[in-house]
């Protein structure tokens, strides 16, 4: 069963056709990779899924409901969490506080007036956040200021924050970009574990083919805003159209 249905989505930026008639169907509880050369429109597509951009035409359905016209926090509350291309965390807050915020969002919804008791008195939230930090192997960093961590740790924290919400669909925009090999392998292991232990669907944008072929069950290739092919990894590897798309880029 497909959890995400993108149909006929177009998006123009002035004269630039960033997305042209995109159709995409992501099956529940699979890992679906979206690859393509720089500027292919991958991030733009993700932006259309989470309410950051509104497509000019077309429809985006999540679990049978349209996400179009909804605000980012509403879409998130439907069950879609997103990790950004550059880590988006609360830099001025501690790691623990970073982790508690999605726990509050999960428990209380989009707004709850909780101005009297201290943060620490919210036992269930503290427990939940501790648990996810343990899962992410970050418990020892809980009192660090988030901005002072390495890029790899920031990304790890951001993934953890998304997982704390127990989303049904996790969107990852180049989660290993700029990471060292070791960090990349850690991230692959982490994502594999997530996929095996949770009822979750993952859509991942990635340039690193090692990551893509380690994780993905289906791959969509996007070039110049349009899906070129969609298939299982083995068929993508040898596909001449895909090579052309990437080679074409290399020649530019």
């Amino acid at each position: 069963m497909s959890i995400l249905e993108v149909k006929g989505v177009n998006k123009r930026f002035g004269g630039l056709q960033a997305l042209g008639d995109v159709n995409l169907s992501v099956q529940e509880k699979t890992v679906h990779a979206i690859i393509g050369p720089n500027g292919a429109g991958k991030s733009t597509l993700l932006n259309c899924l989470v309410g950051k951009l509104i497509p000019d035409t077309g429809s985006v359905m999540f679990d049978g409901q349209s996400v179009l016209g909804r605000t980012p926090f509403e879409i998130n509350q439907m069950g879609i969490s997103r990790v950004f291309q550059t880590p988006e965390i609360f830099g001025d807050l501690t790691v623990m506080e970073n982790m508690m915020i999605p726990c509050f969002a999960k428990r209380d919804g989009s707004f709850e007036m909780n101005a009297w008791g201290s943060v620490g008195s919210q036992k269930d939230i503290v427990e939940h956040a501790e648990e996810v930090l343990e899962d992410m192997n970050m418990a020892d960093k809980r009192n660090m200021m988030a901005s002072s961590m390495s890029r790899g740790d920031k990304r790890r924290l951001e993934i953890g924050m998304c997982l704390a919400q127990e989303p049904r669909l996790l969107l990852l925009d180049e989660p290993t970009a700029g990471m060292a090999r070791a960090d990349t392998n850690n991230t692959i292991d982490l994502l594999k574990e997530i996929k095996d232990t949770r009822d979750i669907t993952i859509a991942i944008i990635e340039h690193d083919m090692h990551v893509v072929f380690s994780l993905a069950e289906r791959i969509t290739v996007l070039a110049q805003g349009t899906p070129l092919v969609e298939d299982v990894p083995d068929n993508i590897k040898g596909n001449p159209k895909v090579r052309e798309a990437y080679l074409g880029e290399a020649q530019v």
Binding site: V50, T71, P72, F73, N76, Q77, S81, R82, F84, E88, I89, F90, G91, D92, L93, E97, M100, I101, P102, F104, A105, K106, G109, S110, E112, M113, N114, A115, W116, G117, S118, V119, Q122, I125, M161, Q165
Partner: peptide, 21 residues
């Protein structure tokens, strides 16, 4: 309070807050 923490998170990264539901 948690409310105060939310306010600080707005100062830190309002976008992240919105994408955290």
């Amino acid at each position: 309070s948690p409310f105060g923490m939310m306010l600080r998170s707005i100062k830190s990264n309002q976008q992240r807050l919105n994408y955290t539901g």
